[in-house]
Design a protein around this nucleic acid. Structure first.
Lengths: 127, 127
DNA sequence: AGCACGTTCACGTGGCGTGAGGGTCC
DNA sequence: AGGACCCTCACGCCACGTGAACGTGC
């Protein structure tokens, strides 16, 4: 599900994949919007993750009309939103686990129930 | 804490308060970034909440260099972030309450503890 | 040698702020 | 009647995309 980050495409291929001018991709790198890997010679290599990010930038600029400063800001906010959403999910799961743990704890103290044999166990401290 | 929404300032005053051109405020309204009330005659009246929003827009455009499309998007994302943060807080509180409720439930079933009188109560279903 | 890469500079377009002109309300 | 409001139009500036020029890597 999480996009592949292995460097793959040189700039002309990447540009064609997303339908952009190669020079535009270089501008994006200068502005810090994207960070393709480089070969030793200095040639940029774009990963699939980079391609996805480029397509997102494309939607923001072409469809929604943001400028690059806005794109930068929005990308950061969206990252924050995603992280907060994950945190919310984790918290929900953790809390459910904690609740069932409380139940489990009480039950462990109460069972197994043994039919009375003249002695009835009612409580055991676990501290 | 939450800003006052009573309509107060006509456009020239509002513009001076935030250091903007009155025409700029009209443009913002056309783009849907801000919605000042109107008098019957059609004169705009800006509230303190409007002033705060204008100052936020000012930071986004002047300091960070966003265009208006970006401002619109960012304002929406920030609203979402705030709402999600509130939801996270509420969930945390609710979950803590639920856990202590579980404890309370078990304790109610177990206490008051009566010294044995020949009959020992061990469990009561609450469903 | 040739092609695609690298960088830098120049041009065109469009978004946005600012101002002027003309009408209306108080 | 005057001043500040309303709206629309025009100008100027700057950001951004595109392309050219020229040098370098493969």
């Amino acid at each position: 599900m999480t996009p592949d980050e292995r460097p793959r495409y040189m700039i002309s291929v990447a540009a064609e994949l997303v339908g952009m001018h190669p020079q535009t991709l270089r501008i994006y790198e200068n502005k810090g919007l994207i960070r393709p890997k480089r070969t030793n010679g200095g040639t940029r290599l774009y990963s699939d993750a980079d391609i996805e990010r480029l397509q997102l930038i494309q939607r923001l600029t072409n469809d929604l009309g943001l400028n690059l400063a806005g794109v930068e800001h929005v990308l950061r906010l969206q990252d924050e939103l995603v992280r907060m959403g994950n945190r919310l999910d984790r918290m929900e799961r953790e809390m459910r686990r904690a609740i069932s743990e409380v139940h489990r704890q009480y039950r462990r103290d109460l069972v197994p129930y043994k039919p009375p044999t003249g002695l009835t166990r009612t409580w055991t401290s676990t501290s």
